[in-house]
Design a protein around this nucleic acid. Structure first.
Lengths: 258, 258
DNA sequence: AAGCTGACTTGATTTAGATCAAGATACTGA
DNA sequence: TCAGTATCTTGATCTAAATCAAGTCAGCTT
């Protein structure tokens, strides 16, 4: 069905009035209307497959509520989670421009509400609206960057480093200062995303607890804001510095070099 | 130094007169001139680092000859190869649009000749030339797709599957029918790209030999064109079909389902 | 409230692949 | 020509993480 008033409200709420999801940011009113008028919103139940590997892509999905993941499944049924989406995230933009059947499956993990943006609308607008094309480029490069991190992590990082780095990024995303933050995904899903079994993930969390970081049912608690600095690398450093100069200066990692 | 006549010749030769590298394909003469006039070409020695992780990106690189790789290095010096480039490949397009310091290092593996396209030229043209922006999107999504395969491979594939799949893709790229094809990279580099040690890679090649595929110093030989079908999956299937209907039909993998 | 179910934890065992170590091979340059 | 170096191969060992197997716990259903 067409977008409801409540969908529009969610759209602005989930970005905290700050700005629209990156896909729609900075667009002219015409472009925005062009997209939203052609889009529909849907509620889907937990576990529902939205795109099957091998399908030709028909929509870009924008998550309004719930969690969704993208994954790859091999012939034997083993799964590799590529991304885990939260509200305001989009997926399938990249796939549209790959010019081939979708290499990924999209699955709602929990009951979710989504906006479906038709494929041809996206392509048409990308061809004539530079701002939109730029948004797409930014999103895809962002995904690509994360994919590179994931590759590195699985290649050369130990489980505890992977988990630590993952938490660090989540921590920085939420804004520092909160010693407690929300952990939005099922553990077994995060484990798969990080390329390890649920068992190994569980054991790794025990080790994290020894460092002072407790991961409960759905939130992460740490003793000091530097508990995760252990897992910082030269890339994440710049994120750290962005957040607040002060915190950066007192971070044990940077102190020595300063 | 500015592009030499020989560089232009290489440009057309390496694409076999077929077309330009994807980055430059379909561009108007003005756009093409705009890029090439602002670009310079350079010869670099083996091992030379072109971009250091953490640098801000200054150029897009187009490989004219030699091989180049992109990689990530962690604090302990361990390396994870992200891509291996051959002539006509480009890199750093995605990084330009990430809006952050380069997450990757770029290194010439062998002595190479490259075209350096300045960052601002790329960004300026992307903002005003839809065709160029589209080329960029296609390239980045292509890389992203490969990154997803790489993630899947490291997550759920065994070494022999990874090697087999890698060879299969190379085989299909070269066009089928050639039971012998060129193997353009150092083995230890491919091993790293596939997320395994050189030793494991070497042992895996022994196993491949038992299946009938011999990997020599710099070329791969197989007994029949279906030796690699063993490693085909639902994605690669479509590549297989593209190549030639006939070969697709006789492929043991498709026969049964047909 | 009892019984199920699914997600997670914890422990014991196995194993694949990394690491360590020693050769083989081939290219380089004096 | 021959030492010297780099790449690759092969074998022996070790270890980290997967697998297998119980067991715990919370949330639902009836």
């Amino acid at each position: 069905m067409p977008l409801q008033k409540s969908d529009y409200e969610k759209l602005s709420v989930l970005t905290e009035g700050d700005s629209l999801p990156r896909l729609l940011r900075g667009l002219s009113t015409e472009s925005l209307d062009y997209i939203l008028d052609a889009s529909t919103s849907h509620s889907v139940e937990a576990g529902r497959i939205l795109v099957q590997q091998g399908d030709s892509p028909e929509f870009v999905f924008l998550v309004l509520s719930g969690t969704v993941r993208t994954l790859r499944i091999d012939d034997t049924g083993k799964e590799a989670t590529i991304r885990m989406l939260q509200p305001a995230d989009t997926c399938m933009e990249a796939v549209l421009f790959m010019g081939s059947p979708s290499p990924i499956t999209v699955q709602a993990v929990t009951e979710s509400r989504l906006i479906f943006i038709p494929e041809n609308i996206v392509k048409t607008l990308a061809a004539r609206d530079a701002m939109f094309a730029n948004n797409l480029l930014q999103i895809v490069t962002y995904h690509y960057k994360n994919a590179m991190y994931q590759i590195e992590a699985m290649n050369i990082k130990t489980p505890i480093q992977r988990v630590g780095y993952y938490l660090l990024v989540k921590f920085l995303e939420r804004g520092k200062g909160n010693l407690e933050f929300f952990f939005p995904f099922r553990k077994s899903m995060v484990a798969n995303y990080l390329g390890m079994t649920a068992e190994t993930f569980s054991r790794t969390l025990c080790k994290m607890k020894n460092i002072g970081i407790t991961i409960g049912e759905d939130k992460v608690q740490m003793k000091t804001s530097h508990d995760l600095c252990l897992f910082c690398d030269s890339d994440t450093e710049s994120l750290c510095a962005e957040g607040s100069k002060k915190s950066y200066a007192t971070c044990p990692r940077h102190k020595k070099s300063g």
